[in-house]
Computed example of a mutant assay.
Amino acid sequence: MSPTALSVLDLSPVSAGGTVTDALRHTVDLARRVEQFGYRRYWLAEHHLAAGVASSAPTVLIGQVAAATSVLRVGSGAVQVGHRTALSVVEEFGTLAALHPGRIDLGIGRSGQRQAEAARERAAPTPAPTGARVVDGLLLPAPFSYAHLVGAPRYALATALLHQAGAQPPAFAGQLDDILALLRGDYRDADGLDAHAVPGEGADLQVWLLGSSGGESARLAGARGLPFAANYHVSPATVLDAAEAYRAAFRPSAALAEPYLVVSADVLVADTDAEARRLGSPYGSWVRSIRGGDGAIPYPSPEQAVTLPWTDADRQLVADRVDTRFVGAPETVAARLRTLRDVTGADELLITTITHDHADRVRSYQLLAKEWAQSGDTGRVR
Rank of each mutant, 00 (worst) to 15 (best):
D320C: 02
T307F: 02
V327P: 04
T355K: 00
V362L: 10
V263R: 11
V287P: 09
R338W: 15
D266N: 09
R341F: 00
D347S: 09
A242K: 13
L349N: 08
E244G: 11
R288E: 03
A243C: 12
E275Y: 15
G293Y: 01
A276T: 04
P282T: 15
P309R: 11
T344S: 08
I290K: 07
G292S: 00
V318P: 04
V239M: 01
V322S: 12
G345A: 11
D271L: 04
P259F: 00
G284W: 15
R277I: 14
L349V: 10
L279V: 01
Y246V: 10
Y365A: 03
F250M: 08
R336E: 05
V322C: 03
V263F: 13
D266A: 06
A237D: 14
F326S: 06
R336W: 00
A276V: 06
A346L: 09
T272H: 01
S253I: 06
R361P: 01
D271S: 08
D320K: 13
I297M: 15
L268N: 03
L261Q: 13
R278I: 12
S281Y: 03
V267A: 14
A265L: 05
V327N: 03
V362W: 13
A359H: 05
V322A: 05
R363P: 01
D241F: 07
T339N: 13
E258K: 04
A274C: 12
T355P: 01
R361G: 11
L337E: 11
S289N: 08
E348M: 04
A274K: 14
P330A: 05
Y299M: 15
A276D: 04
S301E: 14
D314L: 05
R278L: 14
R288H: 15
H356R: 00
V327S: 09
V239G: 00
T324K: 15
L240T: 08
G345Y: 08
R341W: 03
S285R: 05
L350R: 07
Q304P: 07
L349D: 15
A265G: 12
V318R: 01
P236L: 11
A237N: 14
L261W: 14
R325Q: 12
S285F: 02
L350M: 13
L256E: 06
L350K: 08
A319Y: 05
A334H: 13
E244M: 13
V306W: 02
D273G: 00
P330H: 12
L256H: 04
A249H: 06
R341H: 07
A249S: 06
A255N: 14
I351N: 02
R251H: 11
T272K: 02
Y365T: 03
H356F: 04
L240W: 14
I297S: 09
D347Y: 07
V318Q: 02
Y299R: 12
W286Y: 12
A305V: 05
L340Y: 12
R251W: 03
R341G: 05
R336D: 12
Y283F: 06
V327G: 05
L337G: 08
A296I: 01
D273P: 00
A237V: 10
R291D: 01
L367C: 15
V343S: 13
A274P: 07
W310F: 11
T311N: 09
L268R: 06
T238F: 08
A255H: 08
S285K: 07
Y299V: 10
D347N: 10
V333M: 00
R363C: 00
E275Q: 11
E244I: 12
E348D: 10
A242T: 00
A237S: 05
